[in-house]
Design a protein around this nucleic acid. Structure first.
Lengths: 118, 118
DNA sequence: CGAACATTTGAACAGTTGTTCAAATGTTCA
DNA sequence: TGAACATTTGAACAACTGTTCAAATGTTCG
């Protein structure tokens, strides 16, 4: 919790609005899960992976070759993306093919890129 | 760059697709800027701030009181959000009121929350 | 089985991040 | 001007993150 000396004087806060907003604030778990979702999207490498998987299902080596990175680094990031449920995988022999989990991921990437291109 | 020993054997990569995707990969700056945008959205505190500002323009102390955090912590996060162009501010006397920079931020927050609520 | 290769895993490392604390800066008003 | 309060700033700190490296695990095929 917060040290009282750090809070503003109560009579100076716009009490009505603050009280209203505080009661309607979504539960912690909502913000926690949403943060996890955006965390998965906030790294350049993961964005490149998602962009590439939006073009085509790809195996780890394909991604490593496409992005000029080590298979190990790619695999670690794919693991992060999988835990966050942004990608799915299927094994085909020695290779493991990854693809986007759903259209939400695709549209979120596109919305993000579009926003930065303004 | 990548140590050659770390890359997969060239003949095993799906060359055609990889080459096609590699040539169409957006520029680095696109991914960098998009990552900055999502980075601003990937923290719980910042998501709460954005949610609150979506309800109403608020000053630093209002936000601190609403979220139960110190004004200093809130101010630091608002600074981060302002640098990323997600919020704007106006001074009114001793107080500084913050609000969302544009509808993109609002819709992105809503899309993120909606995604986590499935 | 054993060789070859794709992938995963875990430790280690430097770099980044969010909060706290103390101090500085802005602004109002008596 | 000086007191009072809102906000900002910078240093410090622990916690977290992304990559590398070496080693382990999966899978195919001779």
């Amino acid at each position: 919790m917060v040290n009282p000396s750090e809070t503003c004087e109560l009579h100076n806060v716009h009490e009505d609005i603050v009280e209203d907003i505080r009661t309607r604030l979504p539960e912690d778990v909502i913000f926690a899960k949403t943060a996890v979702f955006f965390k998965a999207l906030c790294d350049e490498t993961r964005l490149r992976i998602i962009w590439a998987l939006d073009q085509s299902e790809l195996c780890v080596c394909d991604l490593a070759d496409t992005l000029g990175m080590s298979p190990s680094a790619i695999s670690h990031q794919l693991s992060t993306l999988k835990i966050a449920n942004l990608v799915t995988s299927r094994r085909a022999g020695k290779e493991v093919f990854y693809s986007l989990a759903d259209d939400h991921v695709r549209s979120m990437l596109e919305a993000g890129i579009e926003h930065t291109c303004e």
